[in-house]
Design a protein around this nucleic acid. Structure first.
Lengths: 142, 142
DNA sequence: ATATAATGTAATATTAAATATTACAGTTTA
DNA sequence: TAAACTGTAATATTTAATATTACATTATAT
């Protein structure tokens, strides 16, 4: 799995804490520690699905307009990483009953696993993530 | 995630269908379509945990001695891939509340996600996998 | 009008991870 | 004692993830 999923979570959380103004891909990339072009790619997916809005030009950037509880991690997972749990099986031997069928069997099992994972991820909205971030912040002793 | 998990499932299923004799890493690798050395590496983990036995020398190989229902996919996952769900977060900006805490928040969430996944994987023992392989075999029209 | 600051996206380069290969020591059998 | 295996480390290759460059497009401010 690539880290588009976690980058999307990071970006949305960042935007959710700045809902009064637009944030640039540069600012987000600095927070997340990755290249701004990657941020733009991930955010372009989120925009396509209506989670954020963007504006070009001076003073432009990205902004999160929905309610914090309206977006959960399963939504984000599906947009950025659906199918990522599926193992990449090499082509196996068709003359062996195991080789001939294992790929499809595993596909079915992992499809179920992903759905099951979804039930867990639905429990976390951006609001919950922000709460957890704040908790971590408060419990750190600097 | 690498494919050690699925290779382990493939190997155990293969062995489970040959419980009267030993199978060589060459035979398994031919069924799975990967290099025999990889099979030996994965099986060496499974051996360490008591799922299979091995024997060196002529006529040697690997053999699965437990009951087919004694081993489930969660057992195998833990041995081969524990922690694989965890995203590899780049070091993010400590001066930003999101950057400073997101890594730990995600770690916590993904730890829960893995446990949750475990509950699903426990439903599949090698017996169930064999049943699915047979079903696939029977439903294919050659 | 025009310079500037932003997004959008494709193309390419680089880095990191997964996998394959080689090599060889140790074991068992014939 | 030769042959057929496992066990495992070291290295090479391939593939996937990420970064970088480049540039078109859009909006703002002067």
């Amino acid at each position: 799995m690539n880290s588009d999923f976690t980058l999307a979570i990071h970006s949305l959380t960042f935007l959710a804490l700045q809902r009064d103004r637009m944030s640039t891909s540069d600012a987000i990339s600095e927070s997340a520690g990755v290249h701004p072009v990657r941020i733009r790619k991930v955010l372009s997916l989120l925009k396509k699905h209506g989670f954020i809005k963007s504006k070009e030009g001076t003073g432009g950037g990205f902004i999160f307009t929905l309610d914090l509880s309206e977006v959960n991690l399963w939504d984000i997972y599906r947009i950025t990483s659906e199918g990522a749990l599926q193992p990449k099986c090499p082509d196996s031997n068709k003359n062996c009953i195991v080789g001939a069928n294992m790929k499809r069997v595993l596909f079915t099992i992992f499809l179920g696993a992903e759905e099951h994972l979804g039930e867990f991820l639905k429990n976390y909205t951006i609001k919950e993530v922000i709460d957890l971030v704040n908790q971590e912040q408060n419990s750190s002793c600097d």
